[in-house]
Nucleic acid binder design. Structure first.
Lengths: 351, 351
DNA sequence: TTGTAAGCGTTATCAT
DNA sequence: ATGATAACGCTTACAA
């Protein structure tokens, strides 16, 4: 039961015209009779024709596919990010191919390879947690494939980037905690290899410094920011002489997990410890007390990255556009998991 | 600055052999000298060659792309589902193209069209909330493109399907609530157009009937299962003479939203109303009290669908495999949002 | 084990 | 406004 594919030759034969004319008519090119266009299109419909994009792409060197490499799809932040990309790509007639690195450098490299041999017109990448080598990133320039790095980018690479100001966000979050009267503030950080976590941590340190708060290395805990990491980090705090009076976590997963663990231990949030997370995941507003967190414009990052990528793909290669970094706004969403020291001691604040 | 693409001809020229031999060596075909393979591969590496899959696909009529159409990527359940698909596809050397219908039939149809002209080797689809027409689904068979429907499937279509037993899950959830002593049980249902919601509802009704509980149409509320829907549904219950003593919601989003709204109104969960959700989203275990819910094997559904699709793609067309429906197991996860009537009246149960 | 030639379905170029 | 021809880069008969 072989399936015979309908080609422009078949249409041409039936209509007694040339394949070239059919091709032109189908694409609505200029310099072709309107009557011919009508004839061809209706015949194409009738015969159930559909373009072979492989053949067209081979000829035009365009696939209308963009590749997207992310750590893991099933994280609220990343799913939203991809959703934003798809939204824009779809409007512009591009297909989105997704690859997940599972936060593994080797897998990320393999992803990039398969993406490249799939002849995508461009790519968007958000680095895995432990990626160190940049060779596979450089490959894009070498192969002249437009690339936009998003969120987890590599500072040292000269490519288009879409990010947030993680330093500022970390600074503000910490400053906010300080403004509440806290001065013994812990930070749950991710791998310093990644700009996002390094910058959030640096913002945290800068705020402490700015307000003359003590910088205690024991309060700066590096973790992989998983759910289990939240518990581990709390355990590390518990063995200290003094519990911190506030925690700024580099993501919501860890922050929420920490809150739950602390509550299980009978430590009141925010009465005894104030907590601020990062991302504004759905779980943040379900937690009790609701989690104070930094709103991360995941969808906007995706949309911006896709727009940039597509305009680069569609641009004249000649005009050699400068690489740009787009920095999107974040905002601190203040909710119940953080509260002032003064009121706290009176034990009045719940949520 | 045109970028010259390296082809097998370039490699052949440099090595003084034929392109055919290069092609064979690269693919490690049988009947070729090991020394040639080595020579060719190292030269390919040196020259930075990468396969043009468009050309190869044009010749072999395979793209190694599969298309996936889902309602919306940024829903916990769907993101996990896609993650499972990508996992399997990636292992098998297939790329995953995603399209989101945004729960809109027209968009879904457009998605299917672009997917088809992108010459995918097969597709996986989960229907939008309001899809009625099946013409675009039939197109797959007409064009001889393997298709697997997953989760939100169309009962009337004869295609491969991967589902859960929604009737059974709805029956069990309701039966469980009855076993707790509840007999005035409400159900928040989704569009009866979709098998998943229709079956959950039918399971609910069957359980009520089986245990001789009254079936009250006012307690069966059809909604779009969004967050706002949870609030709306609760409002509809509030105007009744009597509040139900339990609610079974067809998804967690609505269940959680309902719990929050009820709590805001001062109604204790589960003391005054027991609630059961569906999906086991991350928010379910963060809610206080934690949400009793039906665990939905989203990742397994994705993996099963991908495996089936790929084995069909790789199968001999001749052997004309029968369509199958794979039904995966669900389980009821009992947590704090539901409790027995007896204890409840004593006001002892919190969580 | 290797090579030659044709063809996959388009589109671009050059004619007419 | 339309047509003939070549080319995109690969794989598959068939031949050597």
């Amino acid at each position: 039961m072989e399936h015979k594919r309908i080609t422009i030759y078949d249409i041409a034969d039936r209509l007694g015209i040339s394949p070239t004319t059919v091709s032109r008519a189908l694409r609505g090119q200029q310099g072709i009779a309107k009557s011919t266009i009508k004839k061809v299109r209706s015949m194409a419909d009738e015969m159930g024709y559909s373009l072979n994009t492989l053949a067209a792409g081979l000829r035009t060197r365009k696939s209308y596919n963009i590749g997207v490499v992310v750590p893991q799809i099933d994280r609220a932040f990343i799913a939203t990010f991809i959703s934003g990309i798809e939204e824009i790509a779809n409007e512009a007639g591009f297909n989105v191919m997704i690859y997940q690195s599972m936060d593994d450098e080797a897998k990320e490299i393999r992803n990039v390879m398969s993406l490249m041999s799939s002849s995508v017109d461009g790519a968007i990448i958000s680095l895995s947690m432990n990626t160190k080598s940049m060779d596979h990133i450089r490959l894009f320039k070498a192969k002249n494939i437009p690339l936009v790095m998003a969120d987890r980018v590599a500072d040292e690479m000269d490519v288009d980037k879409v990010v947030i100001d993680n330093f500022e966000a970390g600074y503000h979050a910490t400053e906010y905690l300080i403004s509440l009267g806290h001065d013994y503030i812990a930070h749950f950080a991710g791998s310093p290899e990644r700009n996002v976590y390094r910058d959030r941590k640096d913002g945290y340190l800068a705020a402490l410094k700015r307000y003359n708060k003590p910088i205690n290395p024991q309060l700066l805990i590096y973790e992989n920011l998983s759910e289990a990491a939240g518990v581990r980090a709390v355990e590390k705090l518990l063995i200290l002489d003094q519990l911190p009076d506030a925690i700024f976590a580099a993501n919501d997963t860890t922050a929420v997990s920490a809150v739950l663990h602390l509550q299980k231990l009978g430590i009141a949030i925010p009465d005894e410890i104030s907590i601020v997370g990062f991302n504004n995941d759905p779980i943040a507003s379900i937690l009790k007390p609701q989690l104070t967190t930094v709103d991360h414009p995941a969808r906007e990052i995706g949309k911006t990255a896709a727009k940039r990528l597509i305009s680069r793909i569609n641009a004249d290669e000649e005009m050699d556009i400068q690489n740009e970094t787009f920095t999107l706004k974040t905002s601190l969403i203040i909710r119940g998991s953080s509260g002032p020291v003064s009121i706290r001691s009176e034990g009045k604040v719940h949520w």
